[in-house]
């Protein structure tokens, strides 16, 4: 004990700030990992000790074993879900930014669209999912359309907020330089809205995945949502849990791509220097 205290005091004398930063950095990794590990161990222990049948709750180890053993099947189902989510997200992004531009530049569009968008947002949109099947059939079109439908709203709201939050002084400077509206948009409005757009994108990507999964719950021949419904119907809880884990991984992957895109954009459009 005495030795530990000795080194600690020594470290404090060298550079207290750096030591605190390092400790905080380590803690921010160790604490969440530790908690997750604790939950998994508790889960495993409970299932083993209480002898819970795997139909009710499979153990983490058995789920992991299944994923490793049947990764080929899981991958077959993961691909359509991920691709449809990505397509849905990209379309939602394009539609969202387009609507935001319309709302920003046209007063008529703003007055006509904005209240309706907010009203739209109040509808529990999941309730409309079956209608998309009626309108667009049982193929991937209806799932992607539904995914766009529930994912575009946060993009519109965040992007509009970004476009409208531009420094008025800079806009006045542009006007004094006889800048065209296109120049103002590309060199001022869009770059300064980027942080807003990315925060909208981060919400949209998770919603896009939810949209596809719901679509797959209703009708699909493949996909993780389909696998979950199919396995659950056959009381194959282990499979559906494994599908959920893979779904989480796919979600993280897509979210990660957005985060990477944001990091790249930050290199050019962040107020902090590299």
């Amino acid at each position: 004990m005495a030795a530990t205290i000795g080194t600690e005091t020594g470290a404090v004398l060298v550079n207290p700030a750096a030591r605190n930063r390092a400790a905080a950095g380590l803690r921010s990794i160790v604490l969440p990992l530790g908690l997750a590990l604790f939950v998994l161990v508790a889960w495993q222990t409970y299932v083993t000790v209480a002898n819970i049948p795997s139909v009710i709750l499979p153990s983490p180890i058995s789920i992991a074993k299944y994923i490793v053993a049947r990764y080929d099947i899981l991958l077959i189902h993961a691909i359509p879900t991920t691709v449809e989510s990505a397509v849905g997200f990209l379309l939602a992004l394009a539609l969202g930014v387009l609507l935001a531009i319309l709302i920003t530049y046209s007063e008529v569009a703003r007055e006509a669209l904005y209240p309706n968008l907010v009203f739209f947002q109040l509808i529990p949109k999941i309730a409309l999912a079956p209608l998309f099947i009626i309108w667009l059939g049982i193929g991937s079109t209806s799932r992607i359309a539904f995914s766009v439908f529930i994912a575009f709203f946060p993009v519109v709201i965040a992007t509009t907020a970004g476009f409208l939050s531009v420094d008025k002084g800079i806009l006045r400077l542009c006007r004094s330089l006889t800048a065209t509206e296109w120049q103002v948009f590309t060199s001022v409005r869009f770059p300064s809205a980027l942080p807003h757009i990315f925060s909208g994108m981060k919400i949209a990507i998770t919603l896009a995945i939810i949209g596809v999964i719901i679509g797959e719950f209703i009708t699909a021949q493949a996909g993780l949502g389909y696998l979950i419904i199919f396995a659950t119907a056959r009381a194959d809880t282990e499979v559906s849990m494994a599908a959920i884990v893979v779904l989480c991984i796919c979600g993280l992957l897509l979210y990660g791509l957005v985060a990477v895109a944001e990091m790249i954009a930050n290199r050019f459009y962040s107020a902090d220097s590299r």
Partner: peptide
């Protein structure tokens, strides 16, 4: 103006050159 109204994501040099790009 009263405020410098610089583009926060551009360097000092890029901000000085901003009117050149616009014009």
């Amino acid at each position: 103006f009263q405020d410098a109204t610089l583009l926060p994501w551009k360097s000092a040099l890029e901000n000085v050159l901003f009117p050149i790009r616009i014009l």
